[in-house]
Computed example of a mutant assay.
Amino acid sequence: MTSNDVTVVVATRNRRDRLFETLPEHQAPVILVDNASDDGGPDEIATAFPAVEVVRLGENIGAAARNEGVRRAGTPYVAFADDDSYWSPGSLERAAALMDAHPRLGLLSARVLIGPEGRLDPVSAAMAAAPIGTPGGAPGPAILGFLSCAVVVRREAFLAVGGFEPRLFVYGEEALLAMDMAAAGWQLCYAPELVVRHFPLPAGRNRGARRRIEARNRMLTALLRRPAGVAARTIATAAGQSPAALVDVARHLPWALRHRRPLPPEVETDLEKLSAACYAGIERSRRRPAARAG
């Protein structure tokens, strides 16, 4: 345990074996929030790691399990990790120092290295090249999205905006939180000197189900925060990728309209810049000559 200002919150479900690999790597107090696992993991973890606070939930609430961990944390800053990831030595201490030095900093995103070979996550590369600049007094490039397993948040900022929205469950839940923190005036930055190691298992989950949930969450997030035109385009695109997701959105539409809260103009402008850069990158990729075989 090397950081007294940061608590690591890990949300998990039925990943006992992975936790036995990653929990020993954490260098700060850990709160493990279990999403109603039925593999016996919570009891085994509590026995094997008595310093870890294990919180057992009665149902699987997805990403919102992290909210419970943040509420229980007694430190000013909270780092998120997945059951297959951990923060590299020194990163949490450095994150706390940056938070101390920048009082309007609400979220710091680390550089993510994947697998034993330490491949750079493409999301980290995109953050480093984000076209919205570095705000005055900020420690790094501004961002408006993140990977949940690789951020440190200021506890008061996270709780003030409500944390992760339970209705989004998982897959793409980060976007709404990023928008709400930025709209509340908090800075969100990428700090590549912070490093997270991520060891995801080979894909084996239901990709169709994931695609449907991701499409639903993109549509709901747009309905909740983006201008009508942007929301309409987002719905058209996401529905093309997963028509079944429209059924899910229709079920939540009254709730989304009741909770609609458009973003401040400056945040919306930055999102448009990011969208334009993403589109330009896709177009460059399409124009790139195909490699010859042989």
Rank of each mutant, 00 (worst) to 15 (best):
N217L: 08
G145R: 14
I213E: 05
M127P: 00
G41L: 08
R288H: 13
R225K: 01
R211G: 07
R197K: 15
C189H: 00
V267T: 07
D121M: 02
A178I: 01
P89C: 05
A231E: 01
E268R: 13
G163D: 08
L144P: 06
F80L: 09
S124F: 01
A129E: 15
E214I: 14
F20M: 08
N4C: 06
L257S: 10
A178S: 13
A11Y: 02
D5Q: 09
A191G: 11
A239S: 14
P122L: 08
L263H: 09
I114H: 03
G90F: 01
P200D: 14
A277I: 02
G74R: 15
A293I: 03
R261V: 07
A64M: 04
R233D: 11
L92K: 09
A184Y: 06
Y86A: 10
L188T: 03
C189S: 15
P89G: 03
A130I: 12
V152D: 06
S85D: 05
G62W: 00
A79H: 11
Y77K: 01
A256K: 11
D84C: 11
D5V: 07
T234H: 04
C149L: 08
V247Y: 12
S242A: 15
L19A: 05
L168W: 00
V195C: 10
Y86H: 14
P202M: 15
S3V: 11
G185V: 05
N35P: 04
M219Q: 14
G229S: 06
L201N: 13
A36C: 06
G118L: 09
C149A: 11
G58W: 06
A63I: 01
L224V: 01
G115I: 13
P24A: 14
N4M: 08
I282L: 13
T75V: 00
I45E: 01
P227Y: 05
T7H: 01
P122H: 12
V30Y: 02
E21S: 11
R154T: 12
P254I: 09
V33N: 00
Q27K: 15
V196D: 11
A51V: 09
Q187E: 08
G41E: 07
F158K: 00
P135S: 14
R260K: 13
I235M: 06
Y190W: 12
R94S: 14
A63N: 05
A215R: 13
A236V: 04
R261G: 03
R104G: 12
A36Y: 10
A95I: 07
P141E: 03
P192A: 15
A215W: 06
P254C: 03
R288S: 12
N206W: 15
S88F: 04
